[in-house]
Simulated assay, not measured.
Amino acid sequence: MPRHHETRELPYSAEQMFALVTDIARYPEFLPWVVALRVRSDNEIEAVADMIVGFKGLRESFSCRVEKRRPSHVAVHYIDGPMRHLDNEWHFTPLDGGGCRVDFMVDFSFRNRLFETLAGQMFDKALRRMIAAFEERAAALYGVAA
């Protein structure tokens, strides 16, 4: 069961990072392995979406509910798909002098042994690439900090 927690201090506001993370309809534009995404519903406190992820010829779809507490917290709750479970949380804390601390946690496991094996082998590399994609997206949207 891959599990990871990471903290980063970024030059963007908590509101900016919250907006980036909750703009799930745009994930296929910048997140690796997100092949397609359909937003079923979206409002200020919650979104529900179906996502197709692909890696080396394998494709799986899953559904999740995204809980939003502007501008400090985002939690992803798994609904259905190839996973046994998926928990994903983002916390955004303003820093003195600007920017924010981003706490990111993900914990998941697959039902499919092949996906579980691939996830275990590639987890750290994939997670670093995903986190970098969010940081690059922030820089593209909000500018590179001096």
Score class of each variant (00 low, 15 high):
1 M>N: 08
2 P>E: 01
2 P>N: 04
8 R>G: 11
10 L>R: 13
10 L>D: 05
11 P>G: 12
11 P>L: 11
13 S>M: 12
13 S>K: 14
17 M>T: 00
17 M>K: 05
20 L>Y: 06
20 L>M: 07
21 V>R: 09
27 Y>K: 10
27 Y>V: 03
27 Y>C: 08
27 Y>T: 02
28 P>S: 02
28 P>A: 03
32 P>I: 02
32 P>D: 00
33 W>M: 05
34 V>Q: 08
35 V>F: 12
36 A>D: 10
38 R>C: 08
43 N>T: 01
44 E>H: 11
44 E>P: 05
45 I>C: 10
45 I>P: 00
46 E>M: 15
46 E>A: 14
47 A>H: 02
49 A>D: 01
50 D>V: 14
50 D>T: 11
50 D>Q: 14
51 M>I: 14
52 I>D: 08
52 I>N: 09
52 I>Y: 06
55 F>M: 09
55 F>S: 09
57 G>T: 03
59 R>M: 14
59 R>W: 09
62 F>H: 15
63 S>P: 11
63 S>V: 08
63 S>N: 09
64 C>G: 04
65 R>Y: 04
67 E>P: 06
68 K>N: 09
68 K>A: 09
69 R>M: 02
71 P>H: 00
71 P>G: 01
72 S>Q: 13
73 H>L: 15
74 V>E: 02
74 V>S: 04
74 V>M: 05
75 A>C: 09
75 A>M: 07
76 V>P: 15
76 V>R: 14
76 V>T: 12
77 H>P: 08
77 H>Y: 03
78 Y>M: 12
80 D>M: 09
81 G>C: 05
81 G>D: 01
81 G>N: 03
82 P>F: 01
83 M>P: 04
83 M>N: 04
85 H>L: 15
86 L>S: 14
86 L>N: 13
87 D>C: 14
88 N>K: 11
90 W>S: 06
90 W>F: 15
90 W>I: 02
90 W>L: 07
91 H>S: 13
92 F>R: 14
92 F>V: 10
92 F>C: 14
93 T>W: 08
93 T>M: 14
94 P>E: 07
94 P>S: 08
96 D>G: 13
97 G>S: 06
98 G>H: 03
100 C>I: 08
100 C>L: 12
100 C>M: 12
101 R>F: 07
102 V>P: 15
104 F>H: 15
106 V>H: 10
106 V>T: 10
108 F>A: 15
109 S>F: 03
109 S>H: 07
109 S>Y: 01
111 R>Y: 07
111 R>V: 11
112 N>G: 10
112 N>M: 12
113 R>Y: 01
115 F>K: 10
115 F>T: 07
116 E>I: 00
116 E>Q: 04
117 T>K: 08
119 A>I: 02
119 A>Q: 04
120 G>F: 06
120 G>K: 14
121 Q>V: 02
121 Q>D: 00
122 M>F: 08
122 M>Y: 03
123 F>P: 06
124 D>I: 14
124 D>T: 13
125 K>F: 13
125 K>N: 11
126 A>P: 01
127 L>V: 11
127 L>S: 13
128 R>P: 00
130 M>S: 11
134 F>W: 03
134 F>R: 05
134 F>A: 07
136 E>I: 04
137 R>H: 05
138 A>P: 02
139 A>H: 09
140 A>K: 10
140 A>L: 10
140 A>M: 05
141 L>N: 10
141 L>W: 13
141 L>F: 12
143 G>S: 05
144 V>D: 04
144 V>Q: 15
146 A>Q: 03
